[in-house]
Design a protein around this nucleic acid. Structure first.
Lengths: 344, 344
DNA sequence: ACAGACTAGGTAAACGTTTTCCAGAATTGT
DNA sequence: ACAATTCTGGAAAACGTTTACCTAGTCTGT
């Protein structure tokens, strides 16, 4: 059943059917009604492919994430999808799983489907992946790592803000031995978080920061903690590069009988949903996933709808500390003295 | 740049270009080479929309899940996507969030994009949603709840198998007061789990089962536990309708100073990734998400590729117990005597 | 050497829309 | 009442492929 069938039954031309369906105002109300009646009766759904072909607009956005199974991303996907639905767009989702092959295939798929824009919400440097897209002048939006070029937007994350808050919060609680468990340092985002931590520490005159490299996984957090407690000067507080790491720290602390927050304060980063449900609930630096998704979608959308290329190719996402229960005053033994075997 | 451009430059007809690209064997190897050369040089990507329009095959499957933010689903999405990529299919993902409006819109989107099949991997009864799809004769695959009709496949989940194992495992550990925290009973899947539990209990002569209704959330698990410990005869073991519930139980137990598994054995259901990372790691009944996704994809794929409608419209997914550390021998005080205030 | 059967590749008709042009009808101003 | 303008809706040309049909070669067997 196609538009011609409708035209025939409504005794109008296909042009009129098309116009009625698309609510073009030049079609008379009585005619429009007649068309809609037939459309509803027959249960006619226009063929998007034909539409896209002639109009040159696919109404599809690509969305690239690292791994959908990483708890950070589902929220993003959900928000992005909500927005897409609202705007009559479709999403081509790709979870790269860090596999260059996969990325390449995905880019191909996206180009073949003629996506109108792609949001690359991954925290690595999938450089290779974007060549073809740039060449095709597809609007792109990145998190931090996008090149400075026309039709390429960036969402700049203000790591500094939240991390400074976290450090100062700990300092206010009399912590001075504050450790940082970094993410994999080949990730730009992990580097930025680490740098923000170091700067925040320096600002308040805390210089002997203790940094160990993790890998943004729960296991990584566990092993990082074991390393840290073996350190000559054991930290009384730990800031983690992401929440999964912090959760690992919490677990390991539990197993080692280190009480959080009494003996050890822990702060995460990201504020994934799960952070509310740890024991104790995790104090963490929020980087709103839904905000991120919204910014990304808007960036794409404005690139697509506005006639003159929008000035505004930089978006800003600020992070900020969320207080829960995994931080407390430094315990008495924490700072000056060598740590007792079991804190009293 | 289109196929005609390629044809012109390779000095062949568009038909030949099309055939070369699609690796139709009747095109001579030297010609094919010439075509591919031009294709690569120009970076030509065929337009999927045009392709789909004329061939009548969109190479798109719909995938409907309840909520992508529910930890049960990302794994499914990932597996489904992997398979799609391998088979040159695209996915239209919909997370219904239990909203009838959303479902309706999603179905419309899918029909308009002319999906070749839809997997409905949600555990409710989104009846309304499928009318239009059935009418259009779109192949469908459900979990358990699909009507018995042509082109509609069902993945039947054998809840009984895993749940029987769980109950017998507990019984073997000398538990006889075994409680069950059910899911929202309007869900067919929750009902089935509960029924399986009751049957498994009856089989081994345990009749006074203790059942409370939860809601498949972590909070639900927490409040369910508080109810259960207030019960006159406090259970020594709890089987939960899903893992989030079990995790809630674990949390609440921790807060109430009930040791798991020493004082209370807990078993979950689903085996989401997170279940490995609780303290203690959760013994649970596995319902493999990736298996489920694979079955669903295969069902759709065979419906689409095989010429004669496949006989095999029922698929079977068996559940089975995964032993971890949240279960142990019933503590001495558990069964006969009224429970002591604090078990010794 | 010639008829018949294959083969390789070309021509052109789809596929289902949107949209550009046009024409007739209706409205307006004088 | 008539010319000039504005509206409304139709005819037909795109959009970029695939594919049915056809034709001119190339074999094959006698």
């Amino acid at each position: 059943m196609d538009i011609r069938e409708i035209a025939r039954r409504a005794k109008v031309s296909t042009a009129t059917v098309s116009r009625a369906i698309n609510r073009v105002p030049t079609v008379g109300p009585q005619l429009a009604k007649r068309v809609w009646k037939v459309v509803d009766e027959l249960g006619y759904y226009p063929n998007t492919q034909a539409r896209a072909l002639v109009s040159g607009r696919s109404r599809i956005f690509g969305l690239v994430v690292s791994e959908i199974t990483n708890p950070f991303f589902p929220e993003i996907v959900q928000t992005f999808e909500n927005l897409a639905v609202e705007n009559n767009y479709e999403i081509l989702l790709t979870s790269t799983v860090h596999d260059p092959k996969r990325m390449e295939i995905s880019v191909r798929r996206m180009i073949e489907r003629r996506v109108e824009g792609v949001a690359i919400l991954t925290f690595g440097m999938e450089e290779s992946l974007i060549e073809h897209l740039r060449f095709r002048k597809v609007p792109l939006v990145f998190v931090d790592v996008g090149p400075d070029a026309p039709r390429i937007a960036n969402i700049r994350i203000d790591y500094q803000h939240g991390i400074r808050q976290a450090v100062q919060h700990l300092a206010a609680l009399r912590h001075s031995r504050i450790a940082f468990i970094a993410g994999p340092l080949h990730l730009k985002s992990a580097m930025a978080r680490k740098a923000a931590f170091q700067q925040a520490m320096a600002e308040i005159g805390l210089t002997d920061d203790l940094i160990v490299e993790g890998d943004h996984t729960l296991e990584g957090g566990k092993t990082a903690l074991t390393k840290l407690i073996d350190a000559r000067r054991r930290p009384t507080a730990i800031l983690c590069s992401n929440d999964m790491t912090a959760i690992g720290v919490l677990r390991e602390a539990y197993e080692l009988d280190i009480a959080v927050p009494a003996d050890l304060s822990v702060i995460g980063f990201d504020d994934i949903r799960l952070a509310q449900f740890t024991t104790p609930p995790l104090t963490t630096v929020q980087m709103s996933q839904s905000e991120l998704a919204k910014l990304a979608f808007r960036a794409l959308m404005s690139e697509v709808t506005e006639e003159s290329p929008p000035r505004h190719l930089e978006y800003r996402l600020v992070t900020s500390l969320i207080l829960r229960d995994s931080t407390a005053l430094a315990s008495a033994g924490g700072e000056r003295r060598p740590p007792p075997k079991k804190s009293l």
